[in-house]
């Protein structure tokens, strides 16, 4: 839920409430990660490292559900819908443009919710490995999740899975680019 209401508030206040939206969203990714079979068998340090380098990318996949690429609008969980132009004024213009493009590409694959969830698990364990102590364990976990994702898609649509699966894996570098280009965007928090 995002309590952003443009009408009565200053740009700074909108920016702060938009920033607040990230806190619960990040916590949900942490809980999601702990539910990935095998993730909690990694060392705690490696769990933290993967989350720090992968959470932004997982959020990008999650936020796709809020975006309507055809109408270029964003609908927050509280039901408020904003055209891209309005949110561009918040200073996230380039990130939003990139998110709309990514959302369009991912949406074209018409994935089911369970496939998207498994894809997000793959995204997380495929994140940048610098700082990981046991890369072999992470790679093994990644292979298992990729295999499960391929099987899940194949089971649902055997004839198209040969086309869908490679396209889906091609979204991973897109997400890494999004992360490298935009995770340094600034958020603002009021401290009373």
């Amino acid at each position: 839920p995002c309590p952003v209401s443009v009408a009565s508030r200053s740009g700074q206040q909108i920016w702060e409430s938009f920033s607040q939206c990230f806190t619960p969203a990040v916590r949900e990714v942490v809980e999601f990660a702990k539910g990935i079979p095998g993730f909690q068998e990694l060392s705690q340090q490696d769990q933290v490292m993967l989350l720090k380098s992968g959470t932004f990318q997982v959020l990008m996949v999650r936020f796709c559900a809020l975006l309507n690429p055809e109408e270029r609008t964003v609908t927050f969980l509280n039901g408020q819908t904003y055209p891209q132009s309005t949110l561009r004024g918040l200073g996230m213009g380039t990130l939003l443009d990139a998110m709309f493009d990514f959302s369009e590409n991912l949406g074209a694959l018409r994935l089911e919710p369970d496939e998207i969830a498994l894809f997000m698990a793959v995204v997380l364990v495929s994140a940048d490995r610098s700082g990981i102590s046991d890369t072999a364990a992470v790679e093994q976990l990644q292979e298992g999740l990729i295999h499960a994702l391929r099987s899940l898609i194949h089971r649902r649509c055997p004839e198209q899975s040969a086309a869908i699966f490679p396209k889906l894996l091609l979204r991973l570098p897109d997400l890494r680019t999004l992360n490298n280009l935009h995770s340094d965007k600034l958020l603002a928090f009021r401290i009373d």
């Binding site: 990230f22 916590r27 705690q44 720090k52 959470t55 995770s183 340094d184 600034l186 009021r190």
Partner: peptide
Amino acid sequence: PKTHRVMTLADHISHIITQDFARNQ
């Protein structure tokens, strides 16, 4: 006076993750 803390998205994400793991130790 109200003060504002500005941090990058990446730092904000790292901060919440560190907080979460510290809390659950």
